[in-house]
Simulated assay, not measured.
Amino acid sequence: MSNPLQTPHSGYHWNGSSERFFEGWYFRVTLPTLEQTFAFMYSIEDPLGGQGYSGGAAQVLGANDEYLCRTFPDVTQFWATKDELGLGHWGKTDLKHNPQLLDPKDFETQIQQGYQATAYLNQGMIQDPATKKYCRWQYEIKPIYGWGNPNQAQQSTAGWLSSFPIFEPGWQILMAHGLATGWIDWSGQLYYFDDAPAYHEKNWGRAFPKRWFWVNCNSFKQENDLAITAGGGKRGVLWWMESVALICLHYRGKFYEFVPWNSEVSWAIEPWGYWKMQAKNAQYEVELVGTTEHSGTPLRAPTSEGLAFCCRDTMRGHLRLELREKQGRVIVRAESSVCGLEVGGSPWDKPWIKD
């Protein structure tokens, strides 16, 4: 295994079936001094082809929560590896051979539209044909935390049962924290960065949850070794629905896990603007509050009717976080102004509260 921090589910999940299927990947890099974040979202649906929703897409949530999207209808130009993180989709190109990972220099000269990504590289170019706005990007990644303690076997985000097709959808954090070096060209505005905080996750299955929320940050004031992912949703489990949530942190070489099978997790999430979560287990307690005054940006996600606008994100959220021992000693107290915040699905006509 080339990546010692590789998590379970890093490889591509499609088994060749004609049944409804999607897989999506999320790569992010944050530029703390500029308080800007770029998120790259890649997806493939019904990859056998010839079906109503067959196709791929690349979305970019860029500077100031601005948005670009490009679809790639030809599923034969998509590739992904089964045993490790690796994927790409070629759009406009003169190359005739099967799509595959290219040397970054070859990709830049040969692929006019498309992307490629691994655990160590994220590269691509998309352009909106109507507005001519575009994004080009290329950066290398040094993984710091996968999912779990860095000196132990990495864990499935949703536990060992996620190896079976029980939950809809599957969810896996691929890299809770890493450092990215490279550049992003946002319609002529160039951003160069060195050792910027980076993050990867993925999901797969037949559709996103019925309703969900998400809080994610690995760029904190006065804390350069802290990463948190928290979220919850109403998801399908075999023939019923359940509401579940987790809060997990990596801090100074240690993994703190608050998940349904070892902790009590509660939340109060407004339809937009306010995310509060709390959790406690046998040893620790954690509380986080995310807020934003920004309106957020609608994003597309796979649904039973294909890729559709069904969630809202901002990468300019404010986050307050406290982790403490059960006896009261504070382990870390931190704040950020570049937190990712999201709500998705429906209904969001009133707050979602679970005590």
Rank of each mutant, 00 (worst) to 15 (best):
M1R: 13
P4V: 12
L5V: 10
G11A: 03
H13N: 06
W14I: 02
G16M: 07
W25R: 06
Y26E: 01
F27I: 00
F27H: 14
R28E: 10
T33H: 14
Q36F: 01
I44Y: 00
I44C: 02
P47C: 03
Q51G: 01
G56L: 00
A57V: 01
A58M: 13
Y67L: 13
R70L: 11
V75C: 09
Q77G: 07
A80H: 00
E84L: 07
G86N: 03
G88Q: 04
W90H: 05
N98E: 15
F107N: 02
Q110P: 00
I111N: 06
G124L: 06
I126S: 00
Q127P: 07
K132V: 13
K132N: 11
Y139V: 15
S156F: 15
S156H: 14
A158N: 13
S163V: 07
F164C: 13
I166H: 06
E168P: 01
W171M: 09
L174G: 12
M175N: 02
W183R: 12
W186H: 04
S187H: 08
Y191V: 03
Y191F: 12
Y192E: 15
A198D: 09
A198H: 14
Y199N: 11
N203F: 06
R206K: 12
R206C: 04
R206V: 10
A207Y: 05
F208Q: 10
W212A: 12
F213Q: 02
V215P: 03
N216E: 13
N216T: 11
K221T: 13
Q222E: 15
A227V: 03
I228N: 07
A230K: 11
A230G: 06
G233E: 06
V237L: 14
L238F: 06
M241L: 15
V244Y: 08
I247A: 04
C248V: 13
L249E: 05
H250E: 14
H250Y: 14
H250K: 06
F255M: 01
V259G: 03
V259E: 07
V265Q: 05
S266L: 12
G273F: 00
Y274T: 08
W275E: 03
G290S: 06
G290C: 05
S295P: 03
P298L: 11
R300T: 14
S304M: 14
E305G: 08
F309Q: 06
T314S: 02
R320C: 07
E322S: 12
E325A: 07
E335V: 14
S336E: 03
G345R: 02
K350E: 06
K354V: 11
D355N: 14
